[in-house]
């Protein structure tokens, strides 16, 4: 009898588990936010980035550092520097140091009236299109606000590459998953600086925690004028450009 009872119990348990499991997975499947833990998001850091465009000297140390730190394949860029040259007639010339050594050509342009460098990288948008359009949940925002790619789940469809308004994503030519700037997630989660921030000799790149009002980034954003790239896209980028010219897109 007792034996029977135990059998009944386990069966009931099993059914219960099945039902709760099925409902749970169905709910998580439909409303993934239900699965997230209910803690105060302000207890965590919210990582962001600022670029002081007035200081950049176009040495591209950041690009070399990123390549060495992250094994970025040739011909692909997690970060790059654009050079803008505005001529007297209003013509805008833009180029990048895309060669293997990342050194800008001297290539002077006559009647340049205004010229500046603009480093670019993933904007780690608050409402990132790439994680919205990823069909399998391989691109996601970490609790610290970093947009990452799950290299083991990415199917390599390239939809995120098309969806990113900033051209910061690429499909890895040999590993075939979507790849992009991770803000050096492996470094920042140990309290180190991203490699590009570390390597920048002029302090152009500023990395910090928006939830920490004392961080250099928060201070900068309180004191300086800044804008984000393509705000009309509604992506709410977390990469802030200090004193950026309107020519830059």
């Amino acid at each position: 009898m007792g034996c029977d009872c135990a059998g009944m119990m386990t069966r009931r348990e099993m059914i219960q588990r099945l039902v709760t499991g099925a409902t749970g997975s169905l709910l998580v499947w439909t409303f993934p936010a239900l699965a997230a833990e209910g803690e105060d998001p302000r207890d965590r850091p919210l990582y962001a980035y600022a670029v002081d465009t007035t200081r950049c000297i176009g040495c591209c140390a950041c690009m070399r550092a990123c390549r060495a730190e992250n094994d970025v394949p040739d011909g692909c860029f997690r970060t790059w520097i654009e050079r803008y040259r505005v001529r007297a007639n209003g013509e805008v010339l833009v180029d990048v140091a895309a060669g293997d050594d990342h050194v800008f050509e001297e290539d002077p342009v006559p009647d340049t009236v205004k010229a500046f460098f603009v480093p670019k990288l993933c904007n780690h948008c608050e409402k990132s299109v790439c994680s919205q359009v990823c069909p399998v949940g391989a691109t996601y925002e970490t609790p610290e606000g970093v947009v990452l790619v799950d290299q083991k789940r990415c199917i390599g469809c390239g939809y995120c590459v098309q969806a990113c308004p900033y051209g910061t994503r690429f499909i890895h030519p040999t590993k075939h998953y979507a790849d992009k700037c991770t803000l050096c997630y492996h470094r920042i989660s140990r309290g180190e600086l991203p490699a590009c921030v570390l390597a920048c000799p002029k302090g152009v790149r500023i990395f910090g925690d928006l939830h920490d009002p004392e961080s250099r980034l928060s201070t900068m954003l309180k004191q300086r004028r800044y804008r984000v790239l393509k705000p009309e896209m509604g992506t709410h980028p977390k990469c802030y450009y200090l004193d950026l010219d309107f020519e830059v897109v």
């Binding site: 993934p32 699965a35 997230a36 799950d150 290299q151 789940r153």
Partner: peptide
Amino acid sequence: GEFGYYRGAA
């Protein structure tokens, strides 16, 4: 689904 619609172990 541990933290959001992605693999938490990632």
